[in-house]
Amino acid sequence: MNHQTRVYNSIFEMLPGEENPSPLVRINRMNPSPDFVLYAKLEWLNPFGSVKDRAAWEMLRDLEERGELGNGRGVVEPTSGNTGISLAAMSRARGYHMRAVVPNRVPLEKKVLLKIAGADLDVVSDELCPAPGAGGEGSINLAKTYAKAQRHRYALPNQYENEMNVRAHYRTTGPEIWRQTEGRITHLFVSLGTCGTVTGTSKFLRAKKPDIKVIAVQPSEGHDVPGLRNVSQLGVSKLFDPSLIDEILEIDYKLAYRRAMELFQNEGLRAGPSSGLIYEGARRIIERDKTGVGVMIFPDDIFKYTANMVRHIPSLAEGLHA
């Protein structure tokens, strides 16, 4: 493994860590304050394409170390796509089968990618009706069913409850940011899904710098931003620790798509909708706080969301056919 020449013996050596951090790229034209230094951490440059490489790897390694995988036993995971893609690719490359259980609203691109990556796919019609204990949790319950009824075939990492998801960010994302900003970071901007990123990263950074501001963004209710959760949906994640978060901003989810497009067109960053939402949150805080050094964790890129983009920015559908 040589990070200088970037020659690797396997794809796994490319996984991010303090010695091989995902890039921080400064925001220039879209930064509202000249006295605020704003960086985007480009998680789509991880080998399997998203921030979820970190949690997936930590959870998979943990299962391997505990002897939970192999001899016909693979993994089953409820996922809105990215964790599934990382887990499928990693599992298959290590010789295990993988089953992904996804809500129906997950974009087609992700469902197809999961199959291309070698996952067995179950699509569940989540979000039928608000239901305590059941609403929007169909995919989690179906994955749990596989793990319970077919224990010999499936181990369930379960990113919503697995401490390894937090540990991954405590071990990698936090130290990377600390080193990349040389300890100057004042603001961390994140989104909330499983909450592994925010909990792990801010735990590390807060230990280094107790007065760091951690700002989380939420899509407005009824949103269409895969992977993210509104406060009303957060009960599902056991990793949510509100004591680590200074502010939660709720932002109209349609802005996620608009800002994502602007980031590509003005900064050359092919950011996905959750990144767009995080940027909008950062923009609002910078207009208020004016000075500081901020890092936005951009979870993935726009390639998996072209159909969603067309749905939310209808002008993109114009002139596509001869």
């Binding site: 179950d122 019609s125 039928l128 179906l142 069913t145 596989y146 009824a149 077919q150």
Partner: peptide, 11 residues
């Protein structure tokens, strides 16, 4: 079930 795949996955 509402989700007719659930029974096959385990019951």
């Amino acid at each position: 079930d509402v989700d007719t795949q659930a029974y096959d996955a385990g019951h």
